[in-house]
C-alpha cells in the first residue's frame, strides 16, 4: 500500500477513479476538498468504500444535508445545475482529507438511500433533511420531524417556500449603500 501524504487529495481522486470509474462524475478538487457526484443507487457502496478502504478511512461523519439549486444563477442560464441534491461531507482524521458527495435526486419524487447503516450519525441529519427538503431516505427507521411541529406544512428550506415577512417587503430594501442616493434612507 502506498504511503499517503497528509492532505494528499489527488490520491483520493485516483483511487476513486480506478475503483468507481465511470459511476462517479465531476471528480474535482475544490478549495482542497474532493467533490464527487454520485447517483443515488451507488451511494451506499461509495460511502462504505470511503469509510473502510485502507489508506482512505473517511470514518468521521461531518454532516448530511440538502441543497435546492432550482433558483441558482440567472433564469435564462444555459447549463442549469441539477435542481435538488443531497449533500454529504466526510472527513478522514488519519490522513486529513475531505470529500464532499453530491447526490442528485429527482425533484418530483425525491428518494435517496439512507446511509445510517454505514454512519449511524446520519440518522438525525436525514430526519432533518427530510423535513426541510422533503427528501425520503429509503431504509431510515423513523423519518418523523426533528425540529418542526408535526402539523407543520411545507418544506422550509426549499426555495419555493417564502418567508412571510419577505413576501410583504422584498429584500433588500433601499437601505444599501449604492441605493441610498436614490432616497432609500
Amino acid at each position: 500500500m502506498p504511503v499517503i501524504e497528509r492532505g494528499d487529495v489527488g490520491h483520493v481522486r485516483e483511487r476513486l477513479d480506478s475503483d468507481f470509474g465511470t459511476r462517479l462524475k465531476d471528480l474535482r478538487i475544490n478549495h482542497g476538498h474532493l467533490d464527487v457526484i454520485v447517483q443515488p443507487h451507488d451511494l451506499v457502496e461509495l460511502v462504505t468504500f470511503l469509510r473502510d478502504a485502507p489508506g482512505l478511512r473517511f470514518r468521521f461523519f461531518t454532516f448530511l444535508s440538502g441543497v435546492d439549486r432550482s433558483a441558482f444563477g440567472p433564469e435564462d442560464a444555459e447549463d442549469k445545475p441539477h435542481p435538488l441534491e443531497v449533500l454529504i461531507h466526510l472527513y478522514s482524521p488519519d490522513h486529513v482529507l475531505h470529500v464532499t458527495i453530491h447526490v442528485p435526486v429527482d425533484p418530483a419524487d425525491p428518494v435517496c438511500p439512507s446511509i445510517n447503516r454505514v454512519f449511524a450519525g446520519a440518522l438525525w441529519h436525514e430526519r432533518e433533511t427530510h423535513e426541510m427538503f422533503g427528501i425520503d431516505f429509503d431504509g431510515h427507521p423513523n423519518l418523523s420531524n426533528l425540529y418542526l411541529p408535526e402539523d407543520f406544512e411545507g418544506r422550509p428550506l426549499l426555495k419555493s417556500f417564502k418567508l412571510p415577512s419577505r413576501m410583504v417587503k422584498d429584500w433588500p430594501g433601499a437601505k444599501d449603500p449604492e441605493e441610498a442616493a436614490a432616497g432609500g434612507r
Binding site: 470514518r59 468521521f60 461523519f61 461531518t62 454532516f63 482524521p93 454512519f119 449511524a120 450519525g121
Partner: peptide, 10 residues
C-alpha cells in the same frame, strides 16, 4: 472511539 467517529462527535 469508533462510535464517536461514526456519529461525528468532536
Amino acid at each position: 472511539k469508533e462510535i464517536a467517529y461514526n456519529y461525528g462527535v468532536s
